[in-house]
Amino acid sequence: AGGAGAAAGGDGASAAAIDEATLYDRQLRVWGHEAQRRMRDSRVLIAGVDATLAEVAKNLVLGGIPVTLQDTADVEASDVGANIMLRTGDEGSNRAAAALPRLQELNGFLALDALEAPLLELKDDEWRRFRVVVASASRLTAEQQFALDELCRAKGVALYIVYSFGFHAVFLVDLIEHTWIRADEHMRPIKDKDGADIPDSLTYPTMRDAVGASWSHLRRGGKDVKETLFVQQTLFQFEMSHGRPATSDDADEVVDLARSLSKGRGLTKDDWVDGSQLRDMVGMSGVELSAVASVMGGTLGQEVVKVITGRAKPVHNAFAFDGMSLRGSAFRLGV
């Protein structure tokens, strides 16, 4: 009986392995079994189940990366429109708990879970589970973002913080110290003349250093979307000085702050976004649109895969997307 039971268990394990190989067939062909194993053995904390982070979670789970959803807020009617993981009828339920069953449906091979405790109050045994944290700025004050970065650095955890305002979005990155293998656009390793992988590495500034850095190397022109990054940085500075996010009523003050910051950080008048555009973007602070969330979710998902697999150069250390022009650009702040 024992032998029969062992055989049955072995057949089940083999069948599961075959099904898993079929599920991930295309990506296994691209980056191989070792990279897929790293993805399966890592876990990403999705901190704040808003529209963009729901897209990130979807992409990671479909790719074979386990995630934990964390949120202290309950679902409101306004959450349902742009968030692919929330439905009418979820109102009043915790956002992480409501999204979890729908996320699990996407990949039955992964163990997913949800946390309702405050992010900065998670215990050490929880933090030891995570390789990467992707956090929504909408659930964190400026000082809490700095505190989260310091905590992630102490734990050796990579951190992405996402900012959304209507047609525009930004994410900032702190990978602390990161080493990767150079790869082509398909994430296949590039070899040297002897057939060996080519390693490279990057050092990242803290979030506090990044948001306080000079902008003198950021110049308008080309296909960059620096204006989006400038506005995000200005809104961040406003919140730091006022202890609250800016609203439409603060638009004139934000414009004055933007002009002061641009001058103090090495920009000229011609480098800066015009006041009318800035006022429009301030009015959309914290607003998410499903199309922008989808683009940012795909970009962030790809960046997390790069970090976990150690393939290809990651963003170092900011990315901005302009949904009006359909352009996105990576930037370096404080590096």
Rank of each mutant, 00 (worst) to 15 (best):
69 L>K: 01
69 L>P: 01
70 Q>N: 15
71 D>R: 00
71 D>P: 10
74 D>V: 06
74 D>H: 11
74 D>S: 13
75 V>Q: 07
75 V>E: 01
75 V>L: 02
76 E>D: 14
76 E>Q: 15
78 S>P: 01
78 S>Y: 11
79 D>K: 09
79 D>C: 14
80 V>K: 01
80 V>H: 02
80 V>Q: 00
80 V>G: 01
81 G>D: 11
81 G>A: 15
81 G>K: 13
82 A>S: 14
82 A>T: 12
82 A>M: 00
82 A>L: 02
84 I>W: 06
84 I>H: 07
84 I>C: 12
85 M>R: 10
86 L>R: 00
87 R>S: 02
88 T>D: 02
90 D>N: 07
90 D>R: 03
90 D>L: 09
92 G>V: 10
92 G>R: 08
92 G>H: 05
94 N>Y: 06
94 N>V: 09
94 N>W: 06
94 N>L: 10
95 R>G: 09
96 A>E: 05
96 A>C: 07
96 A>W: 09
97 A>I: 11
97 A>W: 00
97 A>R: 12
97 A>Y: 00
98 A>G: 11
98 A>L: 08
99 A>G: 08
99 A>Q: 13
100 L>C: 02
100 L>V: 03
101 P>K: 01
101 P>C: 04
101 P>D: 05
103 L>H: 06
105 E>N: 13
105 E>D: 14
105 E>K: 15
107 N>L: 07
